[in-house]
Nucleic acid binder design. Structure first.
Lengths: 332, 332
DNA sequence: TTGTACGCGTTATCAT
DNA sequence: ATGATAACGCGTACAA
């Protein structure tokens, strides 16, 4: 009924008719390196152009060709860094002719979404998420869909990983503050369940220990600006510190506002550093010194893994580690 | 060769074998309301679960079912607002079982990407962009793919539009500043080619005229924080103003920093308003008074248009206008 | 170089 | 309620 109304898509058959050739010829006209008379190919392409025809990728995919479909699972895209990562991933995948299907949303909604998107013969599932990872990996495993996890290392056979050297990065930042003469450190972390936050904290604490120092105070936020703002207020109220290390930039940005409200001058009275180097960290209002969680390298790594996994579906898992570099601005 | 290595996906045939039923029965087990013995359905679903089978959406799509694939074209996702819109669109589409294929990138890359993605039988193309719109609309028209343009009204037959009442919104903001006693207005706009910037400027200028006032100075930015920062520096240097109206929040945020550097106190000395209400506008560092360019309503409208267009592919075009509401914070 | 014929995995139709 | 069979649109092996 509705299908009767919907205009049917132009098919190769229509073009064949129009151009006065066989249907195979139409297919060949669209296949690079196929044996076909150049004139005939031109006629076909002309007809195709007039009717607005393009080969139906679904039908082609059925036969066994690449589907070129890749899913990106991002949970709720809660923080700015994830949004930036997704944007770059999308553009990177586009540039190599892959089509990213983006999936986000709340836990329950996303669970069903993932289950349903697996009806498509995906070439890969790119994970940028948290709690649902296990279920997704299992389901993808059964369907032989390669999984690439970014930002969190999943020790599952067949899963490739890309991860930032969080601990080493934060150690770098801590050394910077120590060199500058800071001795009284506070930390604002993310939820305990996030491995990245724990690793960053470890980088801080271990570096402090090696300098015979202890962390004087810490608070937990939710990786958001608001939570960093609140945590910083609580933290500064409790203890006198001269260095505030945050598990990500968003919380550091919130902390900057809290410190300002309390009359603490950054960087004269107190140093603040974050992690990620989101675009807002460079805004004039913040000029946040931070550790760059390199998005371009992340995307390059994902594309590389995708390519290698495509060539050799049964290749051993890889885990790629990315260096976090110090970005010096005006908050340290 | 590589195809030989790739494990084949489980098919309905495999499940039929395993469950000892016909292939048709497998299909029916996955079709709501199909005539099938409940026990048999249970057996089939059990077998499917064990083998990790799900119906292949490509094959189903071939037969004429909905593809559930929707493309979102976003250009380069340059500003924060667009990123937020895309994130919400993605989640909205997910929630109704649609799969958004996101396309971004530079002009030339995107042109080819769009052309290629049209090989898929898309249910709709959602535009969030600028310059390529015409080409895309033409190509989609030939393929009978509905186009929904958001943020920019395309007067093309068959294209549905959703647009914010930019002029009226900015008039609202201008009235607020007039009521507060501001009389010396400056404006930072976006590139001339953006209709939204022009409409917002018109809302400002016309409201000023109705109060027998003129715009004292204006500068052009690129909708970015940095460009707003620079524009504000230039503008404030040139003319003494007590109200700075910006075509979007990002530029307003940049302007806030410039004003601070010049010792102008917001909102005591000078008022600043933006447009969009991006999430950063609410950050404690800015507390920007602005006009909300309503994303939730935008998404709802897109989903509604999509649904109506699906039911009636030949329905008349619609153009939906969304109100921009004033969000009062501390910069006015 | 060309056309014919087959298969991809599914759903819809048709008898049964 | 069920199973066989015919599409769906494409790429390609094969025969010409």
């Amino acid at each position: 009924m509705t299908d009767a109304l919907r205009k049917k898509r132009i098919t190769a058959q229509d073009i064949a008719l129009r151009a006065g050739v066989s249907r195979s010829a139409v297919s060949r006209a669209f296949t690079d390196g196929a044996y076909i008379d150049p004139d005939k190919r031109a006629r076909v392409l002309q007809a195709a152009h007039e009717l607005g025809y393009r080969p139906n990728a679904l039908a082609a995919g059925l036969k066994g060709a690449r589907s070129n479909l890749v899913a990106i699972f991002v949970g709720q895209m809660p923080n700015e860094y994830d949004k930036e990562v997704v944007a770059e991933l999308v553009m990177g995948l586009n540039s190599i002719g892959k089509w990213p299907i983006v999936i986000g949303g709340t836990e329950t909604a996303a669970r069903e979404a993932v289950s349903n998107v697996l009806r498509y013969p995906l070439e890969a599932m790119i994970l940028r998420s948290g709690s649902l990872d296990e279920d997704i990996v299992n389901a993808c495993g059964k369907l032989s869909i390669p999984v690439i996890s970014s930002g969190r290392v999943l020790r599952v056979p067949g899963v490739d990983n890309i991860c930032c050297r969080n601990k080493e990065g934060m150690a770098l930042g801590t050394h910077l503050l120590l060199d500058r003469g800071r001795r009284r450190f506070g930390f604002i972390g993310g939820p305990q369940s996030f491995a990245s936050s724990n690793a960053r904290r470890a980088g801080l604490v271990e570096t402090l220990h090696s300098a015979d120092l202890e962390l004087l105070a810490e608070e937990t936020g939710r990786f958001t600006v608001q939570s960093g703002y609140e945590a910083a207020h609580r933290l500064v109220q409790a203890v006198q510190i001269d260095a505030l290390v945050c598990a990500n930039d968003a919380m550091a940005i919130g902390a900057l506002s809290a410190l300002r409200e309390r009359g603490r001058v950054v960087p004269d009275d107190i140093s603040v550093i974050g992690f990620d180097d989101i675009s807002m960290a460079a805004w004039p209002a913040f000029a946040l010194t931070t550790l760059r969680n390199p998005i371009e390298e992340l995307v390059t790594a994902v594309l590389g893994l995708l390519a290698r996994r495509t060539i050799a579906p049964d290749k051993p898992d890889e885990t790629i580690y990315l260096d976090a570099n110090l970005v010096l601005r005006n908050s340290h």
